[in-house]
Design a protein around this nucleic acid. Sequence first.
DNA 1: ACGTAGATCGCCT
DNA 2: GGCGATCTACGTA
Length: 214
Amino acid sequence: MKDKNFLDIINKSTIETAKSLLGMKLVMETDGESQILGNIVETEAYLGTLDSACHSFMGKRTPRNESMYLPAGHWYVYQIHGHFMLNLVTMDEDIPEAVLIRAVQADAPEHDGSGPGKLTKSFGITKEIDGEYFPDSRLTLEVDKTPKEIASRKRIGITCMDEWRDAPLGFYVKGNSQVSRIRKKEILDDDELTWEKPPFQKNKNYLKETIPKA
DNA sequence: ACGTAGATCGCCT
DNA sequence: GGCGATCTACGTA
């Protein structure tokens, strides 16, 4: 078990998991070295057999969505329009619910995590990890930051015509610039302002430096 | 700042 | 053979 907090991550309802994933760190292990990819800033909850926007609606089960039927903590990766989508399974075995990870605030400037297809391409995430249990996978999660404020909205790209289309099952870190399809007016000047842990906790002189002299 | 069209391809019918 | 849990470019205000 690589993450001692993993029970905190998977022992929740799907909506709780979608919210609690905000701020968590994505870490990729390559050639024995851990590389921090960034912090999750946007997720969507997909609520299983009752949810007409979910791949497992009405109990649909095919080789493509088989991983959704695994227990909480397994990765579900599928491809659409030539893009890989990264999801985390959230419930017990045979209860096919999952959270789509839609955007990440990347740690390195050469990476772009501002959309579900963009983040998998930028970080090199492929179907290779589909069905893996995240604590044992090359791609792992770690508890890190907490959002100052979580906002919700309807899910993006949903085409069903019933009440599930507009259900507020999309969650994001309010004000963060890396959230996909967000209005410019909602973005704060500095992404650090969107997290509970402000930068002065990292630098003891921050307050002295930023408070103007009388 | 919005909406829409076209690209594009693996998976399902 | 058709269809997306997308992305980009381009049209219109």
